[in-house]
């Protein structure tokens, strides 16, 4: 009875009308997920500095745009600063022997203060006109803004495609292969003459550069940067990776090549954000969103482990059953 009234009160048209903006923003989360993918999947390091570097990317972008820089130049600067953030984590880890997870937490913690310094206050807003990457009268061209959703989707798609192509190329090179080997088997990598510490540095720098890029894009999309905008970015990134990989494995049962995998990670970002929009549409309390996200990520991270634990036991039970 109540359920019927509740469902009746939901407007499907309303949900559909929200979808394009969700997709546009999803592209940005997808790019961030690609950044997290570099460390989490390829380097086998959970890098928590991204919570800080995402906001740093946003802070640098908004301040440079306010200072009169073009949107593209501001984004490039954001990437460079993100790379430096990653290097900090990498140096703490490889040169000073601090465990990777703790090094990331330290960088993230320090970046909160630095982000406040960059922005001089907790948030900064710039006029939407200044955020156009190529501003033309009549709102055509490349523009990533929540006010012009079709252009934002197109821009998001193009940037994501460029990023996927760039990452696909890099991880196919000699250096990129060495980086993947470092994540896969550090013993073997050292025995093959790979400087494991340097590879970790490069991976962390690259990852945080990509994350800062997405932070800058998010700032352009929303027209504002906030010191808390990166909170939980790592978890959102992990959620996007996991959703993307589940979709990829479901569609490509024989295994997919690396380019396809990267595309699915980006798609995971979009899927994640669509799920969030649906949850909001269902009028669940937005304050619970992070709880839901954390639960989803925890479940999906646990599944492979639990399957691994269960398999021998099941096999034994089967054998025992046959003998008995």
């Amino acid at each position: 009875m109540y359920l019927g009234v509740f469902i009746g009160s939901l407007s499907l048209a309303n949900l559909i009308s929200r979808m394009p903006a969700a997709v546009a923003q999803g592209f940005i989360w997808g790019m961030m997920a690609l950044g997290v993918y570099i460390t989490f999947r390829l380097l086998d390091v959970a890098d928590l500095s991204v919570d800080g570097s995402f906001a740093t990317g946003g802070a640098v972008t908004v301040m440079l745009i306010l200072a009169g820089w073009s949107a593209w130049a501001a984004l490039l600067a954001a990437v460079a600063v993100g790379v430096v953030c990653g290097l900090c984590t990498g140096l703490l880890h490889t040169k000073l022997g601090i465990p990777a997870i703790l090094a990331g937490i330290l960088t993230q913690f320090a970046l909160y203060s630095i982000n406040l310094r960059i922005m001089t206050k907790a948030n900064q807003t710039a006029s939407i006109k200044k955020f156009g990457m190529v501003w033309e009268e009549g709102h055509k061209g490349f523009l990533l803004s929540s006010l012009y959703v079709p252009q934002a989707i197109l821009t998001g798609l193009l940037l994501t495609a460029m990023l996927v192509a760039l990452l696909y190329w890099y991880f196919g090179t000699e250096q990129g292969s060495a980086l993947r080997a470092t994540g896969a088997n550090p013993h073997m990598s050292r025995a093959q003459g790979i400087n494991v510490g340097n590879m970790k540095l490069i991976g962390l720098a690259l990852s945080n550069g990509v994350v800062a890029l997405s932070g800058g894009l998010m700032t352009q999309f929303q027209g504002t940067a906030d010191v808390n905008m990166g909170r939980g970015a790592i978890v959102i990134g992990l959620a996007a990776i996991i959703i993307g990989e589940v979709l990829c494995d479901a569609l490509f049962t024989k295994g997919a090549n690396f380019a396809v995998r990267l595309c699915f990670v980006a798609l995971g970002g979009i899927a994640y954000y669509i799920v969030m929009v649906v949850i909001l549409w269902l009028r669940l309390d937005p304050n619970d969103l992070k709880l839901f996200t954390a639960l989803i990520v925890a479940v999906f991270l646990a599944v492979p482990y639990l399957q691994g634990q269960r398999r021998p036991a099941v096999a034994q039970a089967r054998r025992g059953g046959k003998e008995g």
Partner: peptide, 12 residues
């Protein structure tokens, strides 16, 4: 590529 510089040439 053991003992050689690993650059940005294609890996294989």
């Amino acid at each position: 590529r053991r003992g050689k510089k690993r650059g940005l040439r294609w890996g294989v």
